[in-house]
Design a protein around this nucleic acid. Structure first.
Lengths: 256, 256
DNA sequence: GGTCGGATGATTGTGTACAATATCCTTCGC
DNA sequence: GCGAAGGATATTGTACACAATCATCCGACC
C-alpha cells in the first residue's frame, strides 16, 4: 500500500503551499491530498513507521501530522491501535452536510459583504484550474480543487473561526464524495461556481445565497446516501431485521 | 507563575471526566480549566519544561496537550517561540461571537427536535451547579460551567461537527469573557438557561431560538468590546492617528 | 551615548530507544 | 474439529538526548 503515496521531497508539487517550511506541514499536506484525491481509500491503515520511511522523517513528525488530520476528521485515531483513513457513515455524512449548509450560507453572506476584487479574481482562477482538471480527467485533483474553492470563499468572508470550521467540513465532504458518489460525473459543476462568483461580485446577497444552497442540493443529490453500498456497521447492514427501526429522516436546514 | 496550576495527580477533580485515561487528556483538561477559570491570564507563557515538571510527565505529553489547546484556539503556538495563553483581539472576539450566534441558533433548533428527557434533566442539573458556583463566589468555575452548559446543549443537538465547533467557540468565548468583562456580575444568568430548557422541553423552537438569541445579546452586552482597555497591537492603539481608518462595523447575524 | 554585532544561555524541534499494549499464530484441551 | 489460552511479533505510547533556533546580554564601533 506504500506505493500510493508520493515518494518524498517534492514539496513544490500540488501539495499546499508549505508555508512555514516545517516538515510536518509537508507531510500533512501530502497525506491530506492523497486522501482527498482518493489515492488512499477509506479504512486504509496509516502505519507511523511506514509513513516515516516513505517521507524520510521520524515517527514524531508523522504523529503530529496524523494528529492534525484526525482533528480535521479525515483520519481516525484509535488509541493503541493506530490511525486509519476515515470512512464517514451515512449518518455522519448527513450531519456534515447539515453543518455545511449552515456555514456556506453564512460564508456567502459575509463574502458578499467583504470579498475584495482581488479575491474574486483568485476565485475565478481557481474555477479555471478546477475545470482544467476535470476536462483532463483528473478526478481526484478536481474534487480537491473544488473543495479549495469553497475554502477560498470562506477566507473572503473574513471570519477566522468559520474558515477553520469550513476547512474541516470541506475535507470531510471531499471524503464523502469520494466514497458515496453515484455514477454521474461533473461534481461541483464549475458553472455553478462561476455564477456564484458573479452574484457575489454584484453584491447580490439573496441571489448568491440561493445559488449556494442550490449548489449544496446538487452536491448531495449526486450522492446515494440512502442506499449506501457496503457498510462495516453490522447493525446498519441488518437493520431491516431489527424491530426498532430508525427512520432516515433527511434533515436539511433549507428553511432556516 | 507555576503555583497557579494544580500540582498534579488529582484527576478526580473538576477537570473533565478523563475518559480514556491517557495522560495527555488529564494534562489537557487541567490546563484548559486553568485558562477558563482565569487562573492563567491571557498572554502567560506556557513553558513545556515547566509544565512537564508540574504534571510529572515528559515534554512529549505537554506538547500534545498544547497542540490540542492551540487547535481549539485557547492557546497560541508560536513556532520556535513557545506557547502562550491566547488573548483574543476585539476583532477576533467579534468574529467568534458572530460564529457563535450562528451555531447556537442551529443547535437550539436541533435540540428542540432531538433532546431526550434525560439530557434535559442533565442540563437542569448543570444550571444548579452553575448557580451554586456563582453564589459561592467562585467566578472562574461559574464561567466554565456556564460554557459547559452550552456544550451539553450542543450534544443534545446530535450533530458531531457542530459539537466540535461549539467546543472551540465556547472555550474562546470564556476566554473573551474573562478578558473583556465589564463591571456587572451575573454573567450567563442561570435564569435564562432555565427558561431556555423550558422552551426546549415544550418543543417550542421559535421561542427557544428567541431566548437563545437574547441570551447571546446579553452576553456581549456585558462585554466592553468597543473600548478595550489595553492592547498590544500598536496599530490598533494609535488607529485614531492613522489616515485610513477602519470602521468597527458591528456585524451580528440577528436578522438571518 | 546610541546602535549594531556576536557570544551565551535558554527553549523548542527532532530523532531514537525503550516500555506498554494490541494483534496474530501456535498449541493445548475438550 | 472447534474453542480457548498462551506466547511471539508488530505497533503504538512515552521518555529522553541531541540539534536547531531564538532571546538576551555584553562589548565594540560609529
Amino acid at each position: 500500500m506504500n506505493e500510493q503515496l508520493q515518494p518524498l521531497k517534492k514539496q513544490s508539487r500540488t501539495a499546499k503551499s508549505t508555508r512555514s517550511g516545517t516538515q510536518d506541514d509537508v507531510v500533512y499536506a501530502h497525506i491530506f491530498d492523497a486522501i482527498l484525491e482518493q489515492r488512499l481509500a477509506p479504512g486504509t491503515k496509516l502505519s507511523e513507521e511506514a509513513l516515516g520511511e516513505i517521507f524520510g522523517v521520524s515517527r514524531t513528525i508523522i504523529r503530529r501530522a496524523l494528529s492534525r488530520l484526525a482533528h480535521e476528521g479525515v483520519v481516525l485515531l484509535r488509541p493503541n491501535r493506530g490511525a486509519v483513513v476515515a470512512s464517514p457513515s451515512v449518518e455522519e455524512a448527513r450531519q456534515i452536510f447539515y453543518a455545511r449548509r449552515l456555514v456556506e450560507r453564512a460564508i456567502t453572506e459575509l463574502a458578499v459583504e467583504h470579498a475584495t476584487a482581488e479575491q474574486l479574481q483568485e476565485l475565478r482562477q481557481m474555477v479555471l484550474e478546477e475545470q482544467a482538471c476535470f476536462s483532463r480527467g483528473d478526478r481526484g485533483a478536481g474534487i480537491r480543487l473544488s473543495g479549495e474553492f469553497h475554502l477560498k470563499l470562506a477566507e473572503a468572508a473574513k471570519n477566522a473561526p468559520l474558515v477553520s470550521f469550513q476547512r474541516s467540513l470541506v475535507s470531510q465532504t471531499s471524503l464523502i464524495i469520494a466514497q458515496y458518489e453515484s455514477g454521474s460525473r461533473s461534481h461541483c459543476s464549475f458553472d455553478e461556481h462561476n455564477r456564484l462568483i458573479d452574484a457575489i461580485e454584484s453584491r447580490d446577497a439573496e441571489r448568491a445565497v440561493m445559488l449556494m444552497m442550490h449548489h449544496m442540493d446538487h452536491i448531495d443529490d449526486k450522492l446515494n446516501l440512502d442506499e449506501s453500498g457496503a457498510s462495516d456497521d453490522l447493525h446498519a447492514v441488518f437493520s431491516h431485521l431489527l424491530q426498532t427501526k430508525k427512520k432516515p429522516g433527511r434533515s436539511s436546514p433549507r428553511s432556516a
